Amino acid sequence: MRRVVRVLSAAVASVSLVLSAPAVAGARGGSGGDDTGDGYEVGIEVTFTGDGAPGGGGTYTVPIPPVCWWVTLNTSMLDGTSVDATDPQAVMEWYEEAYPNINGSFTFAREMFPDRSVFENAIAREAAGEDVTWYRIEAGSSGDPGAMASCSPEVKELGGPYGDVPVIYYPWAAGDPPEPAIDPETLAIEARDVMVIDEPEVDRNPKLSDGLDGATFVNVDTWFWVVDPEMVGGSGGTRTIRADIVGTDVWAEVTATTDGLSIASPNGSRQCDPERALRVWEPDAADADGCTVAFTRASVAYPGGYPVTAATEWTATWEGQEQDGTTVGGDLDPLRREATVNVPVAEVQTIVKRTR
């Protein structure tokens, strides 16, 4: 998104009072907006692709906190008379009254209005039979101009202490303002949260039957391996998911990378890279090539066997594109997947025959 040089937040708050700024209202796009209590969210249509996409890929409506969005103008004249946002002439009269009252240290806020010609053009469009409504940009409770710039049709360069100021009032076809602006990093976080990485299900050898409850033996290398290569991202140890916002150029792609499978128990642990975690035991396989753990004691103190946790840790990075084509990216919080199974460990009973 476009970044805007700092504008004094206190000044913006004061100007909002002068202009009778509206409260948070519904936004266009997806399933509409919702004040969740922790912030404002809108339903955005997102297409997910990649080997980590839910359902193998598809388009979903995802609730995402926007950077900014458009709401119907809700303001009044100085005498308290409400201004009809669907009447361009009434909005023009409000503008002519409000504009000269923005002065002193807040004069810069005049630049939040579009040029007078935009007001005149809205009146002409309405007279020609077009339904026109005036809208205002919202960007959370702070009204940060930097965030508002991502939705603005024009950002005016003032320089000095005020930097750049976005135009936040504009007439659009009734019911059809621009879509909310979404930060690609926020989109990447959503993609990371829905990324499909299964818990590591493992098989092992030895796993004895005949009343031994799938036991292995003390001081015998026990092989572990994942039953599905994708649980460790295949031999390369990666999973990816890409999220594209439908109808825009905004996208984010998340790559999760694991260093393999960890096996942890009260009596023996091991870290194995993805390639080793995929190796299935075979009769002629060398123990040194497998993801093996040698338990040094029987599991008599653990009914059912040692609790063995198989886990994968995934680092996550992302790259993406903002609406204006700017490429961005960075790191995200890591992911962890784990599952626990019980592994009985028995003593090897050796029968010694005496000979004479």
Rank of each mutant, 00 (worst) to 15 (best):
V7D: 03
S9C: 01
S14K: 14
L17I: 07
V18T: 10
L19V: 15
S20T: 11
P22C: 02
P22T: 02
A27H: 10
G29E: 04
G29D: 05
G29S: 06
G30C: 11
G33T: 15
E41H: 09
V42N: 08
I44K: 08
E45H: 05
T47G: 09
F48N: 07
A53G: 09
G55W: 08
G55S: 10
G57I: 06
T59N: 10
Y60L: 14
Y60I: 15
V62K: 11
V62C: 10
P63W: 08
P65F: 01
P65T: 07
V67C: 01
W69T: 13
V71Q: 13
T72N: 04
L73S: 15
G80S: 11
G80I: 02
T81D: 10
S82L: 11
Q89K: 12
A90T: 04
A90K: 10
W94A: 10
Y95Q: 06
Y95T: 03
E96V: 09
N101D: 11
N101L: 15
N101C: 04
N103P: 00
T107P: 00
P114N: 09
V118N: 04
F119Q: 02
E126P: 00
G129C: 07
G129Y: 09
E130N: 10
V132D: 09
W134Q: 09
R136Y: 02
I137M: 04
M148D: 03
A149C: 03
S150D: 13
C151V: 02
E157N: 12
G159F: 07
P161H: 01
Y162D: 11
P166D: 11
I168T: 15
A174F: 00
G175E: 07
D176K: 07
P177S: 10
P178W: 00
I182Y: 01
A188D: 06
M195R: 13
V196F: 01
I197L: 09
I197P: 07
D198A: 14
D203M: 03
L212M: 14
D213V: 02
G214D: 09
A215V: 06
T216W: 04
V218R: 02
N219A: 14
V220A: 05
T222R: 04
V227P: 00
D228K: 11
M231V: 03
M231Y: 03
G237W: 01
T238H: 05
R239G: 01
R239M: 11
R242H: 02
R242N: 06
D244N: 14
A256K: 07
T258Y: 12
D259R: 07
D259A: 13
S265D: 11
R270W: 00
C272R: 10
P274R: 08
R276D: 03
R276Y: 00
L278Q: 15
W281Y: 14
D284C: 00
A288R: 12
C291N: 00
T296L: 08
S299D: 08
P303C: 00
Y306D: 08
V308C: 09
A311T: 00
A316R: 02
E319G: 12
G320C: 05
Q321G: 06
E322Q: 10
E322M: 03
G329E: 01
G329M: 02
P334C: 06
P334W: 01
R337M: 09
E338M: 12
E338Q: 15
V348D: 01
R356E: 07
